[in-house]
Nucleic acid binder design. Sequence first.
RNA 1: GGAGAGGUGGCAGAGUGGUUGAAUGUACCUGACUCGAAAUCAGGCGUACGUGUAAACGUACCGGGGGUUCGAAUCCCCCCCUCUCCGCCA
Length: 423
Amino acid sequence: MLDPKLLRTQPETVAAQLARRGFHFDLERFTQLENRRKLLQTETEKLQAERNVRSKSIGQAKGRGEDIAPLKADIDQLGRDLDSKKSELDALQLEFEDFALRLPNIPHASVPEGKGEEDNLEVRRWGRVREISAPRDHADLGEALGLMDFAAATKLTGARFTVLRGQLARLHRALIQFMLDVHTREHGYEELYVPYIVNTASLRGTGQLPKFGEDLFSLKGDQGWSLIPTAEVPVTNLLRDEIQSAESLPRRWVAHTPCFRSEAGAAGRDTKGMIRQHQFEKVELVQAVTPEKSYEALEELTGHAESILKKLQLPYRVVALCTGDIGANAAKTYDLEVWLPSQGRYREISSCSNFEAFQARRMLARYRDSQSNKPELLHTLNGSGLAVGRTLVAILENYQESDGRITVPAALQPYLGGTSIIG
RNA sequence: GGAGAGGUGGCAGAGUGGUUGAAUGUACCUGACUCGAAAUCAGGCGUACGUGUAAACGUACCGGGGGUUCGAAUCCCCCCCUCUCCGCCA
């Protein structure tokens, strides 16, 4: 959510900023809603003040043993006026809130201008791309080894699921352990285990609702529960309605969870293999920091995610998403893209974002400022460190041998009981 | 799942339907005392929104939602959560 003060005082600026990302801010509708809200609110509060005064005087009159019947008659019409004004105001506020909750974040000044993916800015590249003659894709490799089974998953569930077997299932698990170990031991993150089912308040807090409900797998029942699309939701929402002490910051949390996405809009893309699944594992990094530290923290967090790719010796590049490609909730995002030999290009494996106070405002996630001793909104960040399924894909493709076997990256061998090659 | 108890300010903990945003304690901040500290004393000390240049004033908030009433932390209904006991399980 955007700062309501900014929204009210500088709606034109907001409109211009949101236009950078191709979002049309309906200035006319906003102004109309806002003017009406202002009017209704002052009128309603005036009536409430009046009622409070009169009710108080009734109480006093009663205390003196006077007859209060005429006073009550006097207040009758006031009550009816108040009721109708109040319900009008309530309805308008709901409408206004829905409007505000659907507005995306304002991109940071450093975000490159652009319309879509093609305008993203490559920041740096790392690693040497191996020469592989006639590289096979991960699905071919995995199926040939008999360790990756899409047909079985289709039977069990449907399209976009995978069954892994034997050494590949173990490699997949090893990746999770490896990533958690690195982030907890080397980068100072606290490991968390969290629910994989969350309520609507949490989804609203991190910005999945009200706008992106169709991407979620929602559960039956009237609790409004959904499977998590990312650990970001349960982890970041730990901050909801809480006030952190200044000393406890920065908060750094890491959690491994499965992620469930219906990805309705993505049908037809990446239909083969493990790239785009309804269920995948992710190790997620989340930080909560003071506002002045958040861009520094974004660089650090991105570096933490990069360190996994470096340790695995996987070539990658860092891309600053442009205003047209950045997610709705983010103020700035770096994508990490790993080299996939079968596609001859880099593909997203991590997305690291600074949300500034956008999520914190929705969640009322605050810290007590040591100077003012007042609660202030936190800045929240998160990034994949990394998407496990896609990391597995990258290893298969980048470490494939000409006979179809897969070399295990040195950093992972201890996690596989010393195994150096799969197949 | 069944039965009971309970959810009030950072924490603890009062609160007969009426001047209660809420006693009291504690924590915290400021001042006095002190060489300094402790102790003591005095004052301050929630959040959000609105009007206003400001001072200030107003409104809302006692788990959430609805209701009764001129007026609700207080009465009624529904829901959520916590605790205790029982049942069932991993």
